[in-house]
Nucleic acid binder design. Structure first.
Lengths: 109, 109
DNA sequence: TTGTTTCATTGCAATATTACGATTAATAAG
DNA sequence: CTTATTAATCGTAATATTGCAATGAAACAA
C-alpha cells in the first residue's frame, strides 16, 4: 500500500511523524544545517553547496516550507531562504516531549 | 530513483536522517510511546494496542530493533520488547545537537 | 524587444515504503 | 505425537519518495 493509516493514530503521533519524516532525508538535514550555519539568507548557492540538481533542491525546499520550518522571500530573480525561528521552536518542543520521555529505571529485558 | 544519494552527505547528516526516518511513521511513534508508558516489558499486546495487523507491527518492530532503539527477548512463545535505554540516550544526543542549533538573532526574511 | 539569470513546475523512471494474507518456525500444552 | 499460540518471514499490491531533464515563469539588463 505504501499508505500510512494516519486515522488510527493520535494527532500528536501524526505530528511527530510528519516532522520526523522531513528530517528523514540527508539532503534536507544538510539544507537546514547550511541555513543555520550561514545564519543569514541563502539564495541559490544551496545547489552548489549540496551536490544535487536544482530541481531536486527546489523540491526539498518546498517540503521544508510546507511544514513551516523555513521561509522564502523573493528578491529580484533569486529567492532568499532562511529558518523560520518561531516554527522551529514550536517543532523543537513537540520533538523534545517525544524524545525526552522518562526511561524505565529497571532494565527489563 | 527513490534512492537517496547518501555518499554525498556527511556521516552525521546520514545518521540524523536515519534516526528521523524511523520516527517518520505514526505507528512506530505509537509503539515507542507504548513501550515508554508501560515502563516494562511488553509482549504481544502491541497488535491489540495499535490497530495494525500482526505482520505489520512485526515489521515496524524490526526496523526499531535494527537501529538499536528497542530490544526484544524471547520468553516462551512470546517476545518481550522494551526500550534500549543506552541507545535511546545516544540517539537523543545526536538529535538534540541537530534540533538545538542556535537560531539567528536577526530575522532575515 | 531580446537575452540572461534564477528558481519553480512538470513528467517520468527507479526505488522505497506500507500493509496484509499466507505461511513458517518455535515453543508450550494436552 | 498433535494441537495451540505467538511472532517472524515471504510474497505481493498499492502508494510514496527521490532524482533529474526539460520546460516554464518572473525579474533584470542591454
Amino acid at each position: 500500500m505504501g499508505l500510512a493509516k494516519t486515522e488510527i493514530f493520535t494527532d500528536s503521533q501524526n505530528e511527530i511523524a510528519l516532522f520526523a519524516k522531513v528530517f528523514g532525508h540527508p539532503a534536507r538535514v544538510a539544507i537546514l544545517e547550511h541555513l543555520f550555519k550561514t545564519n543569514t539568507c541563502v539564495c541559490g548557492d544551496l545547489v552548489n553547496e549540496i551536490g544535487l540538481a536544482q530541481p531536486t533542491i527546489s523540491q526539498h525546499l518546498k517540503e521544508l516550507k510546507l511544514l513551516g520550518l523555513i521561509k522564502g522571500n523573493v528578491e529580484g530573480t533569486s529567492v532568499c531562504y532562511c529558518i523560520h525561528p518561531e516554527n522551529w521552536t514550536k517543532m523543537k518542543a513537540v520533538m523534545n516531549t517525544f524524545l525526552n520521555q522518562d526511561l524505565p529505571k529497571t532494565d527489563c529485558c
